[in-house]
Amino acid sequence: MNRTEHPRAWWLVLPVLLVVAFSALIPLMTVVNYSVQDIFGPGQRVFVGSEWFREILRDSRLHAAFGRQLMFSASILMIEIPLGVALALAMPTRGIGVSFTLVILALPLLVPWNVVGTIWQIFGRADIGLGGALLRALGSDYNYAQNAADAWVTLLVMDVWHWTSLVALLGYAGLRAIPEACYQAAHIDGASRFAIFRHVELPKLRGVLTIALLLRLMDSFVIYTEPFVLTGGGPGNATTFLSQYLTKMAVGQFDLGPAAAFSLIYFLVILALCFVLFSFMTAGDER
């Protein structure tokens, strides 16, 4: 890409800067300010330095929430990425089947996040839900509100239901971008179906799959609404992830200082992940 220098560029990006800075910079500065103070009420605050950070970093409940978060993100990535690729490979390439499949695949992405929770809340209940009733009929004592393992499984299935489509659609876009000539060359060489996947399709998919992987990693890291509706973080703390814990602290207990310190640590982790994503993407652009 041969881009030129032009003084007009800054004027063109100025509106974006203003709009985003208003909603991003002022709150971020405020969070930094809160994180070093103990706040009792309007105008009543004491500077405490790095005390909250020290406390938060040693908070065992937070460690547990972080561990659960990692478990959750790792689990859904291990299911959603291979499943998404498989779906992308199985999708039809022409005919009315294409539109049909695309629309159904995209449907879960357009459901408001709390309604996703509601759908699975209803579906999983043993008394009125199809899924719950089916499991009961098979002799299991499935109950996502009481049993931690069941709550986990329900959350995982819900997330797979909600987001695998994203991976599949990204993979589909990547596959469509492969020139027909590549396949023909492979056929002439007498390559097997698996060999075509391994040596033609997978390398071409690397770009979109990395985007998909990092998008899913980051979005699952900030998941809030769906578990909030489905399990409310329970039973006990079994499905309390980082965002739930943070919101509980900030809104529920009004511990502004510790919550702000927590927010900043959380934000730094996301920032580092985001930097990896960005370096990868632009490295691809320059080549």
């Binding site: 405020t30 300010n33 809160y34 070093v36 309007p42 605050r45």
Partner: peptide, 8 residues
């Protein structure tokens, strides 16, 4: 409400 302090 932004609660500015000298260090921040």
């Amino acid at each position: 409400w932004m609660a500015w302090t000298a260090p921040t």
